[in-house]
Design a protein around this nucleic acid. Structure first.
Lengths: 327, 327
DNA sequence: ACTCTATGCGAAATCGATTTCATGATCAAC
DNA sequence: GTTGATCATGAAATCGATTTCGCATAGAGT
């Protein structure tokens, strides 16, 4: 690859002038022409590494997420990418598998690669952001909080859990279970709290804890606890799934048991983009994951540009999509 | 962030020695201790940008794919990530949306950021790799060829299409359609060719072109052409879907029409990780996407390490998973 | 005892861009 | 016509690591 020096020599100017041409600083028309010409001839592309080293900032943002195989997060990623790309930034997608150690590694890399900023769906609320804050890199939290006072975009989880449950109540179900993710993950906990509030009000004689299951936010987790629920002496007649993958797992198990929804009512907090049930027999509270990504990316870009207003938290609401009777 | 100079000063050695300590070059025990001590005190992390500039190579590899929202590619990404991460590399995930222009931009970035190599699922077979080859960066093709003589990992697409179709024949279906991706994408074309071979042999009186539909590799594409097929004067009694998303779209439409498989036979080339049909009424030819990622990453790492044997192509076979009778 | 090699280590060059600083030219104002 | 401001431009410093080069010391070989 040609360097700025070679371009300078061919154009008969100094390297400084070449740099100025490419950065929009005032240069006489004739030199601009000469430089552009030389650059074209040599197929010059500025070396981003050198530029980053000198400017102490790169046009790369890190998106750190716990599970790249979850469509919820890829949809989020998609939103981030669209905004970033338009602004001339590229996105490094970092998959942590919910492991704090992997997450810490990626955050270190973000620092030592001088990345412009980080969008983080934290593996846990004990994630340590001291170093990256000390490095002055902006961080925007998505989906979950971080324990730091930083910008964030989250879903209205409690409301979503509530809406899902209420809809099942309206549909006539009387014994509504809930399966959700790890208790330590706030999204899992809050959605369950939404469910709990409705159940406690509507069915005061039911012991909520019997019908509540914490699991992983994965398909196999959903399968496992759904089996447990069905094996109860008095099984539920409906279930609220705390995220998309749990929903998939639960529905799989139900189908295996001949309890295809709506025989047993199912409401999912999240979307099922690849479901083959259609028109859906399942109630969804669709979460605007892509919109979350877009919002977070915009906020991050503002911070990168130097905005230092107090930290903001944006809360996005899910949208109830009621089950239609199966066709 | 502390620099190597500050560490050197605190440890009472030269910056060169600090560098040597961190790169495993011979240094006396006492100086090693002093340097490590100083580094710990200052929380020193080497600046990767400076290192990349000097070494002309970074520990980052680019994974360029056409659709990050397709679980097939995220599974692939997962395989790449696992291998890369273990080898100390991080992965930049670049989503091209099958647009040559976006793809070209990302390839330029890979060059100008001195990335160690690229794993590429090309947007089209006209992708231009001249620049990146001139830059001496290794490229491994995945899923699809590139028109260049480089390492690659592909699926046995024709065989997969054939296996899917043959299974439908064995299951008694007589009028088997095929929906696949854009004709210009070799995976789409080859899978259709597999289908065509079987149909031509088994049902010589059928005009294959009437039952073959090229579309996009997306859910809406599958929906659209499935509707078309059902509207035929003489509709098919089974269909082969050329990838996972087409399969999802097709099954959605079938469900809407009350033709839930196996009423109308469905075989999909690919996996349906988030399907809610279970035990599946759908025949799958599962493609080892993750394995493809692992293989490609290993090949790339070998090239990065300097291996210059002739280009290799690895072909992976799908695995037939017959539909079980619905429970 | 006298080379000869090996080894540890610091000084300085290097990677390729950006940016500061100094210089000379141009032009307006009084 | 002198002063001052503005502007284009080049030389050189800078970002922070790695690496070459050369020197000094230590140990091996004859």
């Amino acid at each position: 690859m040609a360097t700025i020096y070679e371009v300078a020599k061919l154009a008969g100017v100094s390297p400084a002038t070449v740099s100025r041409v490419f950065n929009g600083v005032a240069v006489s028309d004739e030199k601009v022409a000469a430089v552009r010409d030389a650059a074209r001839q040599l197929k010059f592309t500025p070396n981003r590494t050198a530029r980053t080293l000198r400017k102490q900032e790169s046009e790369v943002i890190a998106l750190v997420i716990p599970d790249i195989e979850n469509p919820y997060f890829t949809e989020l990623a998609r939103g981030v990418e669209d905004v970033a790309q338009k602004a001339g930034y590229s996105v490094v997608l970092c998959n942590t598998d919910s492991q704090l150690e992997k997450e810490a590694t990626y955050l270190q890399i973000a620092i030592s690669e001088h990345m412009a900023g980080v969008i983080l769906a934290a593996a846990s609320d004990t994630t340590n952001l001291d170093d990256i804050q000390a490095a002055g890199r902006p961080v925007v939290a998505v989906d979950r909080g971080t324990g730091y006072d930083i910008d964030g975009v989250v879903m209205a989880n409690r409301t979503a859990g509530q809406a899902a449950t209420e809809h099942l109540v309206r549909a006539g179900y009387r014994r509504i279970a809930c399966i959700t993710g790890p208790q330590l993950i706030e999204t899992a906990y809050e959605r369950a709290q939404g469910w709990r509030a409705v159940v406690a009000r509507q069915f005061p004689d039911v012991d909520p804890d019997e019908l509540l299951r914490y699991s992983t936010f994965r398909v196999d987790g959903g399968r496992e606890v759904m089996e447990e629920l069905l094996a109860l002496p008095e099984p539920p007649d409906a279930v609220v799934a705390g995220n998309n993958l749990l929903g998939v797992g639960a529905i799989q198990v139900l189908t295996e048991h001949g309890l295809t929804p709506p025989k047993l009512g199912v409401a999912v907090v999240g979307s099922l983009p690849f479901t083959t049930l259609s028109p859906s027999a399942v109630t969804l509270v669709r979460l605007p994951a892509r919109h979350m990504g877009v919002t977070a990316a915009k906020m991050l870009l503002e911070r990168i540009a130097g905005d230092d207003q107090p930290a903001r938290t944006v809360v996005l609401r899910g949208e109830l999509q009621p089950a239609r009777a199966a066709g």
